[in-house]
């Protein structure tokens, strides 16, 4: 498997499309980083006190969006680009049957490919985060605290899982569809659906379950919100966004958008805006992270089974 892994890794890192994506990601990140750090520096100049200043580099949106949103949006594309032709390219090039004639286990091929993809995107994300951190340090002159580093590390780990999920989906499609074009389109349309249309779908489902009109009391609003949340959390994009927000912004105390608060609670919420400690942030998003990892493994598991059972007849 090591042999397949290193060959695939070399292929990924040498490929033109990876280079294009990398340049694109790096330049956009630099742009965002630049505007964000200017905004922050300006705010600091006005004497505003900001907690967890360093993390703001990733969460504050510049002119368009924040780095966190950028990775959430663009990460899937990276995963898809790395995986959509993993198996069917070999099938088309008639190299699959040849490689299977060599004394290796069949799963070495798919494991090697998946791990090489994961390694590539880990390398990419690490370099991206380090680059931004470095630039941020230089431009706003703030060194990250230990907790901020820990939060960034956790963020990195589940970002890899999130993009790995898309890699897994792309590899699955590359096994199921013989045509490279079909698998690319299938992965991309799934990504678009999940990224943009799930919130519409969630609203529709909520409308059906709790019809509009009538009494708009708290109970009604909460119930509606709960249904929307459940449906939209079927989408890995929502899961990832909520998790990233909570981990990178210690002020975020819940992933819920609507909450019922008693008068005392609301007073204390507005008076004491203390950040959550790291482990409490983790507790808030633990279900999200579990779901994300589960989805990733589940997706790869399906690809694995399908690949192992597939007849390798030459067409």
């Amino acid at each position: 498997m090591k042999v397949v892994f290193f060959k695939e890794l070399a292929d990924q890192l040498n490929s033109t499309r990876y280079l294009i994506l990398l340049i694109l990601m790096l330049s956009v990140s630099l742009l965002i980083c630049n505007t964000v750090s200017m905004n922050i520096a300006e705010a600091l100049g006005r004497g505003t006190k900001i907690q967890f200043l360093f993390l703001k580099l990733f969460t504050v949106s510049g002119s368009f969006f924040s780095l966190k949103q950028f990775i959430a949006f663009f990460g899937p594309l990276l995963g898809i680009v790395m995986g959509f032709d993993a198996i069917n390219r070999e099938f088309r090039g008639r190299t699959l049957s040849k490689v299977l004639c060599q004394p290796i286990y069949r799963d070495d091929i798919i494991n090697g490919k998946f791990l090489a993809g994961l390694a590539t995107l880990t390398i990419t994300l690490i370099s991206l985060i380090l680059l931004i951190s470095g630039l941020g340090m230089a431009s706003i002159g703030v060194v990250p605290t230990l907790e901020e580093i820990a939060r960034l590390f956790i963020y990195l780990v589940f970002s890899v899982a999130y993009i790995g999920l898309w890699l897994g989906i792309a590899i699955l499609f590359s096994i199921v569809f013989r045509s490279v074009g079909t698998s690319a389109l299938a992965s991309i349309s799934l990504w678009i659906f999940v990224a943009f249309f799930v919130s519409f779908a969630a609203n529709v489902v909520a409308d059906i379950a709790v019809p509009r009109g009538g009494m708009q009391d708290a109970y009604y609003i909460l119930k509606r919100q709960a249904i929307t949340d459940v449906v939209s959390r079927l989408s890995p994009v929502t899961l990832y966004n909520e998790a990233a927000l909570t981990i990178l912004d210690p002020g975020q105390k819940s992933t819920r958008s609507v909450m019922l608060l008693g008068p005392m609670e609301s007073v204390s919420m507005s008076r004491f805006k203390n950040p959550l400690p790291l482990h409490q942030s983790l507790v808030v998003v633990a279900p999200h992270l579990t779901m994300l990892f589960a989805m990733t493994f589940f997706c790869f598991g399906i690809s694995y089974v399908v690949f192992m059972r597939q007849e390798i007849r030459a067409v």
Binding site: V3, R94, T95, K98, V99, C101, Q102
Partner: peptide, 28 residues
Amino acid sequence: VGCMPENVGFYDDMTGRENLKYIARLND
């Protein structure tokens, strides 16, 4: 057992020698 499938394919973005080396590595 060495097997050459019908219409055998190669990794077109690798040289002939690299193709051979990869197969040698797969064979330990």
